[in-house]
Amino acid sequence: MSELDAFFDGMTRFLRGDLDAAALRDRLGPSPSAPGRFTFYRGLIRANHRRVLAHLFPAAQHAYAGGGGAPWPALVDAFARAHPCGDWDLNAFGAAFPAFLEGRPDRPDAASLAQVADYEYAFYRVTRAPDAFDPAVDVVNPTVTPRSYTCDVPAFVRSVRRGAPAPLAATPITGFLYRRPDDRQVRWLRPTLARLLAFARATGEIDDEACAAAGVESPALDAATDALVRAGVLGRGARR
């Protein structure tokens, strides 16, 4: 191993917390800088992890606080150790966080925490999704992200972001998270049964016959399709 390779190997182990400053010195030799200066870099990286997750998951962090288990910073450190991120996009660091929360054995509310985090990460992804929707011709807005939760996660997240956190209501909810093409704002839409079926028909998942079996006939489906086109969920290509 060359000296440069040894440097990167030693620094990587140190930054991950697998070596302390004394062991790093033993491996790489002395530096004019005090050991605490090297430890500072490890702190910077941990702070970056916390900053990214705080930015992506403010509502999940709020819901987590005060509920027992490891403090939030320790939780983030544990997540970073379990899911080191190789992606250049620092926000990709948060992709595995909802599943990580769901697997927390020390939290009886792990499932709802995971749902909050899932919504927040989906919101981020929809916000940044490519501009790939032409509402004049396309069938479906590709930013549409259907979600079903056992709690009213969207209302809870909105309340936290407004600075007036409300309790996480145990109300099952289904809807579409999507970005409107006109004002580029991200919306949460709770569809009626007819609109849910109209969306499924537009995506080719069901046909008119199945919709009728669910109690929604073609005229109602067409009206629901028009409503979804106006809302920016579907494009005009979805109209029959």
């Binding site: 060359s2 000296e3 440069l4 440097f7 990167f8 190997d9 620094m11 990587t12 930054l15 991950r16 870099y41 910077l44 990286i45 970056n48 992890h49 990214v52 080191p84 991120c85 190789g86 992606d87 250049w88 620092l90 660091f93």
Partner: peptide
């Protein structure tokens, strides 16, 4: 600087050793 090593991105701007090998690299 370097920001990634061993397949992990550290999301920080980490200094290099001031060596000839690092210059060439």
């Amino acid at each position: 600087c370097f920001a990634r090593a061993g397949g992990e991105n550290f999301y920080d701007l980490l200094p290099l050793p001031f060596t000839r090998a690092a210059v060439d690299h």
